[in-house]
Simulated assay, not measured.
Amino acid sequence: MRIHKTFTEKDRLEDRINYLRNEMLQSAAATGLNSHRTIYYSQKLDKLITIYQKHFYHMDTNERMLQNDKII
């Protein structure tokens, strides 16, 4: 049951990251790279990516190790 919850949280975070990335790119195209709006989206995106890496990088690494063990 916990696995399902983890994947759901991961999916939501990935969706939010993709949304903010698109908003940042649209803002950069409309207002420039140094606009307050673009920088705002960039900073929010950085925070979410950091959260993603802290919470899910370790899990993904363990999954790859398990898959490699199955192949051998």
Results as ranks from 00 to 15, higher is better:
1 M>S: 15
1 M>K: 15
2 R>K: 15
3 I>M: 14
5 K>A: 10
5 K>M: 08
6 T>R: 11
6 T>E: 11
6 T>C: 09
6 T>K: 14
7 F>M: 07
7 F>H: 08
8 T>E: 15
9 E>Q: 10
9 E>Y: 05
10 K>G: 01
10 K>H: 07
11 D>V: 03
11 D>R: 14
12 R>S: 06
13 L>F: 02
13 L>H: 02
14 E>D: 11
14 E>H: 04
15 D>T: 08
15 D>M: 09
15 D>N: 15
15 D>S: 14
16 R>H: 11
16 R>A: 03
16 R>N: 08
16 R>Y: 06
16 R>L: 05
17 I>K: 00
17 I>G: 00
17 I>F: 01
17 I>T: 01
17 I>M: 03
17 I>D: 02
18 N>P: 01
19 Y>N: 07
19 Y>L: 07
19 Y>W: 08
19 Y>A: 05
20 L>D: 01
20 L>H: 03
21 R>T: 04
23 E>M: 08
23 E>Y: 01
25 L>N: 13
25 L>M: 13
26 Q>T: 08
26 Q>L: 13
27 S>Y: 00
27 S>N: 01
28 A>S: 14
28 A>V: 14
29 A>P: 02
29 A>I: 04
29 A>D: 13
29 A>Q: 10
30 A>R: 11
30 A>T: 09
31 T>V: 04
31 T>L: 01
31 T>R: 06
32 G>Y: 07
33 L>K: 10
34 N>K: 08
34 N>W: 12
34 N>I: 11
35 S>E: 01
35 S>R: 05
35 S>N: 05
35 S>D: 03
35 S>V: 05
36 H>Y: 06
36 H>V: 11
36 H>P: 06
37 R>V: 12
37 R>L: 08
38 T>S: 00
38 T>Q: 00
39 I>V: 11
39 I>C: 00
41 Y>I: 02
43 Q>D: 12
43 Q>H: 09
44 K>A: 02
44 K>I: 00
44 K>Q: 10
45 L>D: 00
45 L>I: 03
45 L>N: 01
46 D>N: 12
46 D>E: 13
46 D>W: 04
47 K>I: 08
48 L>S: 03
48 L>T: 04
49 I>T: 04
50 T>A: 13
50 T>Y: 11
50 T>F: 10
50 T>W: 09
50 T>M: 05
51 I>R: 15
51 I>Y: 12
53 Q>I: 12
53 Q>F: 09
53 Q>T: 11
53 Q>H: 10
53 Q>A: 04
54 K>L: 09
54 K>W: 10
54 K>Q: 13
56 F>D: 00
56 F>I: 03
57 Y>W: 09
57 Y>N: 09
57 Y>D: 10
58 H>T: 10
58 H>L: 12
58 H>C: 03
59 M>V: 13
59 M>D: 04
59 M>L: 14
60 D>W: 10
60 D>R: 15
61 T>I: 15
61 T>P: 02
61 T>N: 11
61 T>V: 15
61 T>L: 14
62 N>C: 06
62 N>Y: 10
62 N>F: 07
63 E>I: 15
63 E>F: 13
64 R>N: 08
64 R>H: 09
65 M>E: 06
65 M>L: 14
67 Q>M: 10
67 Q>K: 12
67 Q>R: 15
68 N>P: 00
68 N>M: 07
68 N>H: 09
68 N>I: 07
69 D>S: 07
70 K>L: 12
70 K>M: 13
71 I>V: 10
72 I>S: 04
72 I>C: 01
72 I>Q: 05
